[in-house]
Design a binder for these strands. Structure first.
Lengths: 127, 127
DNA sequence: GTAGTGTATTATATCACTTAATACACTCAG
DNA sequence: CTGAGTGTATTAAGTGATATAATACACTAC
């Protein structure tokens, strides 16, 4: 619900975090989970800005971070494309997972959870 | 390393997040993991501000959130004390864990990890 | 009374984020 | 060649959260 479709991706923006960061994360997520194919073109800066009702500069910022990470290639006059280098994608995916895990474990340890506590906790609420 | 001791707690401030939030989290962590005993007095607003070299208003903000959560009781003219109500502490602890877990799982799912992937991933790098 | 508590207020400064309005360089279809 | 659509850069402005500073007040204990 509430999501906006653009270029085969689903966008869901709120006010909890910077917009450019949400755009970045949601495109990165689409790439990592294979929701969008390698080599595909993503919407132009202006087009996505208009669709999401945000400023082109804000979209631009997200796109630049994607390119810095090697997840996209931009061709002046043509558009922005998902990289075809699967290794880069897998590395990013692994690093994101590592980072999220590290952060999670640190938070849990800081409130007095042990490793076994965490295992047990993750098992809760399963279907 | 780099940590500052104050009132039996260890403080470690950086620029990655708001200062008041870090102070809040680190005191809350101390309580949750039992690093500080129920009923104990924590440093006065002015004292902690001086020790951490930050503004009293910033410390105040953290203290007010702690009290709103029921983790501390403030007695005008006397100081701020950790609650003696262990149930409140355990509830907060559980909620923090739940929140951290939810955030973690959502992040992992968003980059295409399945539940079993995550289990495997958490097992990595163990001693 | 004095010193040490929490608390409130007002003002100021800074920074990140976002928008807006332009302008330029490039590519492609016509 | 022209025009529309790309990415890109620049400058200006506004907003809100954060943090500091200075001050004052209410309360408690000694």
């Amino acid at each position: 619900m509430g999501g906006i479709e653009a270029g085969g991706m689903e966008f869901d923006l709120d006010l909890s975090k910077p917009l450019y960061e949400q755009v970045l994360q949601q495109i990165r997520g689409s790439i990592a989970r294979g929701g969008i194919a390698l080599g595909d073109k993503i919407p132009s800066v202006r087009e996505l800005a208009q669709t999401l009702k945000i400023n082109p500069n804000t979209v631009m910022r997200a796109y630049q971070e994607l390119e810095r990470d090697g997840l996209t290639e931009t061709r002046r006059g043509q558009g922005t494309f998902i990289t075809t280098n699967d290794e880069v994608v897998q590395n990013i995916r692994y690093n994101l997972a590592r980072e999220a895990t590290k952060e999670f474990l640190e938070k849990m340890y800081s409130i007095g959870f042990t490793k076994t506590d965490i295992q047990r906790f993750l098992g809760e609420g399963d279907e």
